[in-house]
Amino acid sequence: MTTLSERLAIRAPEDIVRVRQIVRTKAAAAGLSIVDQTKIITAASEIARNTLDYGGGGEVEVEGVADQSRVGVRLTFRDQGPGIADVEQALRDDYTTGGGLGLGLGGAKRLCSEFRIDSKPGVGTTVVLARWK
C-alpha cells in the first residue's frame, strides 16, 4: 500500500528546504530510524539541487510506502531539462559540470536502499530514491 503521495515543485532554492522538510515528515511517519531519516533527507537535498541547478527546475513526488515486503519512503524527481548524455560518468564521484564536488549523484546512490536514474538528452531526467526500514 502506498499512502497519500505529495508533490512539490522545485523552482527556487527555498524549495530545496521544503523538500527536506516534507521528506523528514514522511520518513519519520514511516518509522525510519534517525540515521535512515538523515540519509534519505540528505540524498533528497542533493537530487533536489540537481533538479533545480541542472534540470532547470521540476518537481518531486514523495510517497510513504507500506506493503508486505517493505516500509519506508520513495521519492521521484522529474525535470524536463537537458538530460545527461553519459549517466555512468555523471554518477562518478568528482565528476561535475557545475563546479560542485561531483558527490550528489554517487552520494545519493550510496545513501539509499534503491536508486534509479533515467535520463534522455533533450528530454529530461527522472531520479527515484527509496529508503526502506
Binding site: V35, Q37, T38, K39, T42, D93, L103, G107, R110, L111
Partner: peptide, 14 residues
C-alpha cells in the same frame, strides 16, 4: 555535529 549527520557525511563521501 549529530552522530547521524557524521555517519551520513562519510557515506556521502564528503
Amino acid at each position: 555535529m549529530r552522530p547521524a549527520v557524521a555517519i551520513t557525511l562519510v557515506e556521502l563521501g564528503l
